[in-house]
Design a protein around this nucleic acid. Structure first.
Lengths: 114, 114
DNA sequence: CTGAATCCGGATCGATACTG
DNA sequence: CAGTATCGATCCGGATTCAG
């Protein structure tokens, strides 16, 4: 995890952002949630290979940071929905930029440097 | 607005990008290098609290991934310069988006949710 | 279905000391 | 100046199990 107070005056927004995006699965969770409200099991299926533990942990983090709203329906069987808050949706440019950058990486991988 | 799902076939570029940006100090190193060529000690000073070990490790990674060019001047005292490659400079939109997002985080921290 | 609890291995990180 | 070597701490994350 990045210390947001690392030598950047007054406090580096890049480090701040990185601390929110940090964690192995966080960006992928954002990627899914940017597509709209999702249920727990939907997220688990959409993100290949994440364990229930990590999914719950990341979602808990994001909720605590005010990035995600959690709605519980006390039905049987239980149902929980996760939605990005306004603040959470403001990561969209970041994910979009990452997607574009990722595409460049893949193109370069196919057609190596001159 | 992006369509995250459409962007994720066959291999997710977002995950690809995340793997490059991964690591505690990576984004901060990019942040510095986007400002132009830097020497080892300049980076160490600009990024508060990074140990020589971690700095060397991350720079090695980035060089191996083709994001950074390393130039050694066999002078006395020794001098080494690190510069982003063309591919490396293509992360700029990502860092820029992160900076903007970080600013929103800070504003929200000062002026809490409605 | 939606998680919380437990255990555990390996990756990651920091501090320090040392070299060319 | 620009790193490498070594050690130890921690923390992340995976597998599994179980509960509401």
């Amino acid at each position: 995890m990045i210390d947001p107070n690392a030598a950047c005056e007054p406090e580096c927004p890049v480090a701040e952002a990185a601390s929110v995006l940090d964690g192995k699965w966080t960006t992928l969770i954002f990627r899914e949630l940017l597509g709209g409200t999702k249920r727990y099991s939907q997220l688990q299926r959409a993100i290949g290979g994440i364990s229930p533990r990590m999914l719950a942990m990341r979602l808990g983090d994001l909720e605590a940071r005010g990035m995600v709203d959690k709605t519980i329906y006390p039905t049987v069987p239980p149902k929980t929905e996760y939605t990005l808050t306004t603040l959470g949706r403001s990561v969209e440019p970041v994910i979009a930029a990452m997607a574009q950058f990722g595409v460049q990486l893949q193109q370069r991988a196919i057609n190596p440097a001159p």
